[in-house]
Nucleic acid binder design. Structure first.
Lengths: 230, 230
DNA sequence: CCAAAAGTGTTATCGCTACACCCATGA
DNA sequence: TCATGGGTGTAGCGATAACACTTTTGG
């Protein structure tokens, strides 16, 4: 292919930015980083990375997530393209935003600290560089919307969790209290949880049964398209 | 800014591809084009364009849509990023896919023909270049899902339309028959249609009343977040 | 006058919501 | 023994789904 219509076309810097959600202390949190490079060094920012010429875009997002948190195989989802010509005053950079759900407690604390990161409550996000606040807003909206139709949120909890913990998570996402009887009935009726014999005694004296998420049943359900309004 | 961390990063070709939906003859159709350039010249393809250095990504999509159909201000929506390194054998091209809903009958027929375009029933899409079939599949899935929660589909009908026409459109999208009494009740209860005094007598002897879509009421509803299962 | 599509109400069922009390246990 | 959170059932209501006949009119 000596010369093709590709020749002479303008190329762009392409980045990924990653909105990292976690759940701890009964609140949803976002992991933000202090930007190290000029312009805007020292300000809060999402983590991002340029997409390399021989790298899938999604790989760039996963690569930087691992670099900053030590985590692999994280649940990530594309949020969309931020492609305005003037969005980055430093250069023309098109960015693909991804959102990731991680289990707080599984990431590499040292590594994260070394990168100048901090968890923020998701209703107390500081001012971020570029259009990152817009990305975060869209990610939160999407999380809320999606939670209605898919039992995500499992990606935010530890492997074993109790029904009350799961309920608190959903209450955070929806920002409203849920009835515990209805919640329990609804979740259990989906048949995607496996009840364990252990109890978690940290949350109460009586102790609550631990459950784990049955990936097989979940996937078969997810493919049929779930209706999951809580 | 003499040198920044942007310097020395690899740049990519970035394209947009556009899935164009139309509704005619009681079926949903897609507008496809014969690819003019090598590699793969002569095969069916979506229309696309490279994003220029000083151009918003969404603008590139709108620009090429206008160039090929003559239409401006079309309802377009981002579908997602297709960013695998090997997706285009000719070069490393990252593509942002957009889907557009247009009113068949409003586009510039000559212009479209000159570009070697043809409408295809959406369940009879031919083999397309690169990963365009995958883009089309995702676009169709998304159209179905979205139609449940937002009264789009209005963008596919002429300005004035009848309830039975609207119902046929939804039957196409869902691929199943709907009860006309329930459909009419549901649609009218949303209060986003304005009944006109005219009738459309083409579809039947009796004639069906024409309606038009009340943009004001629609937008106020759309912002609250609609629940629109039919 | 008849074929063909438009238009119209009612009933049964299902799913969601709201709601209050007992249980188990550690301190 | 008591304070704390875990766990359970039911009744009312609203939304959905199923269903058949009358109306209009061009040919």
């Amino acid at each position: 292919m000596s010369h093709t219509f590709y020749d002479g076309q303008e190329k762009l810097l392409v980045a990924t930015d990653c909105i990292i959600f976690g759940f701890d202390d009964n609140t949803i949190k976002l992991l933000l980083f202090e930007r190290k490079v000029d312009p805007l060094a020292g300000e809060w920012s999402l983590i991002g990375s340029f997409v390399r010429a021989k790298e899938d875009a999604s790989h760039a997002a996963a690569r930087v997530l691992e670099e900053y948190t030590g985590l692999q195989n994280v649940y990530m989802e594309e949020l969309g393209c931020f492609g305005e010509a003037g969005r980055d005053p430093g250069a023309r950079v098109l960015s693909i935003a991804y959102s990731a759900l991680i289990r707080i407690g599984e990431y590499d604390v040292d590594l994260v600290e070394r990168h100048g990161a901090k968890w923020f409550d998701y209703d107390q996000i500081p001012s971020l560089v570029l259009d990152h606040n817009k990305m975060v807003d869209i990610a939160i909206q999407k999380l809320r919307r999606k939670a209605k139709y898919q039992p995500l949120g499992f990606a935010l909890l530890p492997e074993k969790f109790t029904i009350p913990q799961l309920q608190i998570l959903y209450e955070c996402i929806y920002q409203r209290p849920l009835d515990k009887r209805n919640f329990r009935r609804k979740i259990l009726s989906m048949n995607i949880l496996e009840k364990l014999d252990e109890k978690d005694k940290l949350g109460s004296k009586k102790g609550a049964f631990l459950y784990k998420f049955d990936p097989e049943k979940y996937h078969s359900l997810a493919q049929k398209g779930i209706l999951f309004e809580i």
